[in-house]
Simulated assay, not measured.
Amino acid sequence: MNYQQPKQLQAVVLDWAGTVVDFGSFAPTQIFVEAFAEFGVEVSLEEARGPMGMGKWDHIRTLCNQPQIAERYRKVFDRLPTDDDVTALYERFMPLQIEKIALHSALIPGALNTIDALRDKGLKIGSCSGYPAVVMEKVVELARHNGYVADHVVATDEVPNGRPHPAQALANVIALGVSDVAACVKVDDTWPGILEGRSAGMWTVALTCSGNALGLTYEQFKALPADQLDSERQRIGKMFEGSRPHYLIDTIVDLPAVIDDINARLARGETPQGC
Rank of each mutant, 00 (worst) to 15 (best):
Y3Q: 11
Q5D: 10
L9H: 09
L14R: 06
W16K: 09
V21T: 15
A27W: 02
A27I: 04
I31Q: 00
V33D: 03
A35L: 00
E38L: 12
E38K: 10
E38N: 09
S44Q: 01
A48V: 03
P51S: 00
K56L: 06
C64L: 08
Q68R: 10
Y73T: 03
V76Y: 00
D85G: 00
T87W: 08
Y90K: 00
E91D: 14
F93T: 01
P95V: 04
K100Q: 11
A102D: 13
H104C: 11
L123C: 09
S129W: 00
S129V: 06
A133T: 09
E141H: 15
A150H: 08
H152I: 11
T156S: 15
V159G: 01
N161G: 04
P164S: 06
P166D: 05
A169M: 07
L170C: 09
A175E: 12
L176W: 02
L176P: 01
S179Q: 14
D180R: 08
D180W: 08
K186Q: 15
V187R: 08
D188A: 14
W191C: 09
W191D: 12
G197P: 05
G211E: 02
G211Q: 05
A213N: 11
Q220Y: 05
Q220R: 12
L224E: 04
A226Y: 07
Q228H: 09
D230W: 00
D230I: 07
R235W: 03
I236G: 03
G237E: 08
G242W: 04
L248Q: 12
I249V: 13
T251H: 07
I252R: 05
D261N: 14
I262R: 03
I262K: 05
R265W: 06
L266W: 03
A267H: 12
R268A: 13
G269T: 11
C275S: 12
